[in-house]
């Protein structure tokens, strides 16, 4: 898929575990795992907003377009 999710990179930078992120963002572990492993078909803006707020980053830090 051309859109790559770099959630694990941001999580490592912020030294945050998946469990912690899941609790703070309000998403289930399975949904976050789907996002992290690049299996998600779409991301809601509200979800992206919550993740960026918790990880203190921009959407472009999490999502990358690769040709």
């Amino acid at each position: 898929m051309p859109i790559v999710v770099n959630l694990d990179v941001m999580m490592a930078k912020r030294k945050m575990s998946l469990n912690e992120l899941s609790e703070k963002v309000g998403l289930t572990l399975s949904n976050l795992s789907i996002l992290k492993t690049g299996k998600a078909k779409a991301v809601r803006f509200s979800t992206l907003e919550a993740i960026c707020e918790v990880l203190d980053c921009q959407p472009g830090d999490i999502l990358e377009f690769v040709e």
Binding site: L27, A40, K41, A42, V43
Partner: peptide, 8 residues
Amino acid sequence: QNENELTI
């Protein structure tokens, strides 16, 4: 529905 399930 499948797409919805994979929408985070």
